[in-house]
Computed example of a mutant assay.
Amino acid sequence: MLDVPLDSLYAWFGLSLASVALVGAVAGLPTTPPPNAADAATTVDRVAAAEYDATAEHPLDASAVRIESRRISLRNDAGTAHATFGFGPVTPVPASDSPLRAVLHGTPPEDAFDSPRAFQQAVVDARAESDDAAWREVDRTLVVRRTSWEGVDVVLVDA
């Protein structure tokens, strides 16, 4: 009467192993959601669709970013997300000390460049460089600015 049936011991052992496996699987899940590239792309599209000069910022929930002329990619510990711009191409600002960076942060193009032709060439070079865009670490917001100078209309993007 005090004996335990032999198969209940096996069932108890099996449930214990399943519980340990379940706890291990749950502990391996990411603690943060993947980044939201669609919201970042929507911010870029809103500025790009503006009729006049405009600027916007979008907080990023990513640790790395890759900005190309037609899409943005965000990455964090939970995964990678990509989104395509509806209004493009945009001009990713080079990581180097470029006059485009000054324009992105509010300097008028006529103060940063000698001529509209030099401005246009900098835009063309930045777009060509973005075709081989690499992942860059990011810990701030996405900055977008639409500006124009004597027929050169551009949407600058950087994070």
Rank of each mutant, 00 (worst) to 15 (best):
Met1Pro: 01
Val4Arg: 03
Val4Trp: 00
Pro5Phe: 09
Leu6Phe: 06
Leu6Asp: 08
Asp7Gly: 01
Asp7Ser: 09
Ser8Val: 14
Ser8Trp: 04
Leu9Asp: 07
Leu9Lys: 06
Ala11Leu: 14
Phe13Glu: 11
Ser16Lys: 00
Leu17Phe: 12
Leu17Asn: 03
Leu17Asp: 04
Ala18Ser: 11
Ala18Ile: 13
Ser19Ala: 15
Val20Cys: 12
Val20Ile: 15
Val23Asn: 03
Gly24Lys: 07
Gly24Asn: 11
Val26Ile: 15
Val26Leu: 15
Gly28Val: 12
Pro30Met: 05
Pro30Thr: 09
Thr31Ile: 08
Thr31Met: 03
Pro34Cys: 01
Asn36Trp: 03
Ala38Tyr: 03
Asp39Leu: 11
Asp39Glu: 14
Asp39Gln: 14
Thr43Trp: 01
Val44Ser: 09
Arg46Tyr: 05
Arg46Met: 10
Val47Arg: 06
Ala49Val: 00
Ala49Ile: 06
Ala50Pro: 05
Ala50Thr: 06
Glu51Leu: 12
Tyr52Lys: 15
Tyr52Ala: 15
Ala54Ser: 15
Ala54Leu: 01
Thr55Lys: 04
Ala56Ser: 07
His58Thr: 03
Leu60Gly: 01
Leu60Pro: 08
Ala62Cys: 01
Ser63Ala: 14
Ala64Gln: 14
Ala64Tyr: 10
Arg66Val: 01
Arg66Trp: 00
Ile67Cys: 07
Ser69Met: 03
Arg70Pro: 00
Arg71Val: 00
Ile72Gln: 01
Ser73Tyr: 00
Ser73Gly: 06
Arg75Tyr: 00
Asn76Pro: 03
Asp77Pro: 04
Ala78Arg: 03
Gly79Ser: 08
Thr80Lys: 02
Thr84His: 12
Phe85Cys: 00
Phe85Gly: 07
Phe87Met: 11
Gly88Asp: 08
Pro89Val: 03
Pro89His: 10
Pro89Gly: 02
Thr91His: 07
Thr91Cys: 14
Thr91Gly: 02
Thr91Leu: 03
Pro92Trp: 03
Pro92His: 01
Pro92Val: 06
Val93Cys: 09
Val93His: 07
Ala95Arg: 13
Ser96Arg: 13
Asp97Ser: 09
Ser98Leu: 05
Pro99Asp: 02
Ala102Thr: 05
Val103Trp: 07
Leu104Glu: 00
Gly106Cys: 04
Gly106Gln: 04
Thr107Arg: 13
Thr107Tyr: 00
Thr107Cys: 01
Glu110Gly: 11
Glu110Arg: 10
Ala112Trp: 05
Ala112Pro: 06
Asp114Cys: 05
Asp114Val: 13
Ser115Asn: 05
Pro116Leu: 11
Phe119Trp: 07
Gln120Gly: 15
Gln121Cys: 07
Ala122Gly: 10
Ala122Thr: 06
Val124Asn: 12
Asp125Leu: 10
Asp125Ala: 14
Asp125Cys: 02
Arg127Tyr: 04
Arg127Leu: 04
Arg127Asp: 05
Ser130Ala: 14
Asp132Ile: 03
Asp132Trp: 07
Trp135Pro: 04
Arg136Glu: 15
Glu137Leu: 12
Glu137Pro: 10
Glu137Trp: 09
Val138Lys: 02
Asp139Asn: 11
Arg140Trp: 12
Leu142Thr: 03
Val143Phe: 09
Val144Trp: 00
Arg145Gly: 02
Arg146Ser: 12
Thr147Asn: 10
Trp149Arg: 06
Gly151His: 07
Val152Cys: 08
Val152Pro: 02
Val152Asp: 01
Val154Asp: 07
Val154Ala: 13
Val155Ala: 02
Val155Asn: 10
Val155His: 02
Leu156Glu: 06
Asp158Gly: 13
Asp158Glu: 05
